[in-house]
Amino acid sequence: MTIFAVLIISCLGFSCMAFAKPKHWKVIPFLSRLRHPGKRIQELMQYTGAILLILAVYTCQLNWGWALGLCFYAGALSIALFFVSLVISYFENTVKN
């Protein structure tokens, strides 16, 4: 079950990092009216993303130890990044159309 937690935390982390970019900002429905996020919001999103990704590695370490934990972490990051990018791309295309 821990692997699902790690995947969810990594997905949230990457989503925060993506939304820190003005390009992907408009995907969020209720904030899309704001053309650009302010610089402070951007920084806040980036830091939150980074903290979440660190939290994910901490969860892995806690559950499996460093050797096995890092294997899980690398795998989870790959899947999370790919998944988040596809989801964002899907919403961007439906928003545009």
């Binding site: 790959s78 899947i79 990044l81 990018s85 596809l86 964002i88 791309s89 295309n93």
Partner: peptide
């Protein structure tokens, strides 16, 4: 980092190449 533009023809292939390699 998070870009994939499936409607962009040739660029879509490049995006997918980039995305799958950076992710893994």
């Amino acid at each position: 980092f998070f870009s994939f533009r499936p409607q962009k023809g040739k660029a879509a292939w490049l995006d997918m190449h980039n995305l799958s390699s950076i992710a893994s």
